[in-house]
Design a protein around this nucleic acid. Structure first.
Lengths: 233, 233
DNA sequence: CACTGTCAAGAGCAGTGCTCTCGTTTTGTT
DNA sequence: AACAAAACGAGAGCACTGCTCTTGACAGTG
């Protein structure tokens, strides 16, 4: 009833300040950021930070959730600016939104899409925010199916689906996008992997001495290749 | 002239033993392996290890080179077992060779294809071993061009190449695979990214709760989708 | 007022990468 | 064979890390 106590307010403020400083250090130190360094920059003693995050992993988890949410939001706002009927435009906007965020926050992208930390197991609370980008793409497909602006591939065009794989695709479709036919979901998954594959390659330095100036062009073209494969129009 | 001195033999032996122990610890500790722990397991004192590797980063570099070489060798031996004229078979063999090695050595794969370590800059000595897998694919394409068993895509089929991107592709082709036309190289690059994109997604846990049992089937199918796109036959 | 829970601070533990020194052993050269 | 140079393992030490525990001060509630 009563407004938040002073304590609670200060606590929330300090919590987000800790996360902000940690985010800044993430850029220079990578995943092995130092809780003590964060505390030092805050003018606190390291043990005090443990009042707010019970362990370094919990701080990392909080950062991961924030990053997933930021990336998801970036993709969504970019995509939402495009006419709903323009599937290709929405796909391009979402893709570039993801890439732009990743380029602006490379350490954060590495945190969520990079190598898993050996001892670290991502808690369940991360899967929701993590699903935002994939949900965006699935919604795109579902909208295309509803509007008839996406080509459902004829059977036999793609390599055959093993029964095992078909069952798994059906299971995914059933609980995420029931209107999307199996073959289309399969193609969408390919495009989804390609999207993040290109971004990951670019950020992790696999394009060095290969594609230098034309990276944005290259990414854009990959998006269009995949859009054509999926049948967006 | 003279045989290696005892010192040199012992040194070589210890050097590879250090690397072997480090490799084993890599599996459990990930990229932040401890030089002291390696020394401890060796029954040496930490400062003694510095006689063999001037820093922890140098140890990591040595491991990275070894891993690139192992991965390259695994892909090459898998691919070399297939009839030279069977381009699709060679592509599938190389792809599965890469994935099999990655599944057998996940920490090592993360080391070379995962998030870049913030302070670490890969020295030039790594680019040779790193190029083995891509060379394999480029040779595949060149062989296909020579034998006429790969379809060179007609102009206008794919989204247009920007002049910038076309120039970079030409530069790559000129010094790596002069006989491969630009459009084919472009498609090959797409396939190359998809290959490693799928492996990376699988190893970094992006398929959890999505594709579980059918991962090998899924990978195989992605390889075939890409083979069809590239025009291998 | 007193009580309860929260907080920052400090000391301390075990671990890390790395440097320097010290005595010993091996090597290559007179 | 003798000797200087190089290489080597061990140890101490520095500054750093994540984390725990204790202590004393403060705020919120009855």
């Amino acid at each position: 009833m009563t407004a938040k106590s002073i304590r609670a307010r200060v606590r929330d403020e300090l919590t987000s300040e800790i996360k902000a400083i940690a985010r800044r250090q993430l850029a220079t130190e990578g995943a092995n950021l130092s809780l003590r360094a964060v505390a030092r920059e805050l003018g606190m003693v390291s043990s005090a930070v443990y009042r707010y995050f019970p362990s370094r992993d919990d701080l990392l988890t909080a950062l991961i959730i924030d990053c997933y949410d930021e990336l998801g939001a970036a993709a969504e706002t970019a995509e939402s600016a495009v006419d709903r009927a323009d599937l290709l435009g929405r796909w391009l906007a979402a893709g570039h939104g993801i890439r732009d965020w990743a380029l602006a926050n490379p350490a954060e992208y590495a945190l969520i899409y990079g190598s898993p930390v050996p001892g670290y197991q991502a808690p369940r609370t991360t899967i929701g925010p993590a699903a935002r980008t994939t949900d965006l793409i699935l919604t795109l497909l579902a909208d295309g199916v509803a509007a008839g602006t996406v080509a459902v591939p004829a059977a036999g065009t793609d390599p055959p689906l093993s029964p095992l794989l078909a069952a798994e695709l059906d299971r995914i479709a059933a609980l995420a996008c029931p209107t999307v036919p199996r073959e289309l979901l399969s193609r969408g998954t390919t495009a989804w992997i390609q999207l993040f594959g290109v971004v990951t390659f670019e950020l992790f330095g696999r394009f060095q001495n290969m594609i230098e100036e034309g990276r944005r062009d290259f990414f854009d073209r990959q998006l269009r290749v995949m859009a054509a494969y999926v049948g967006l129009r």
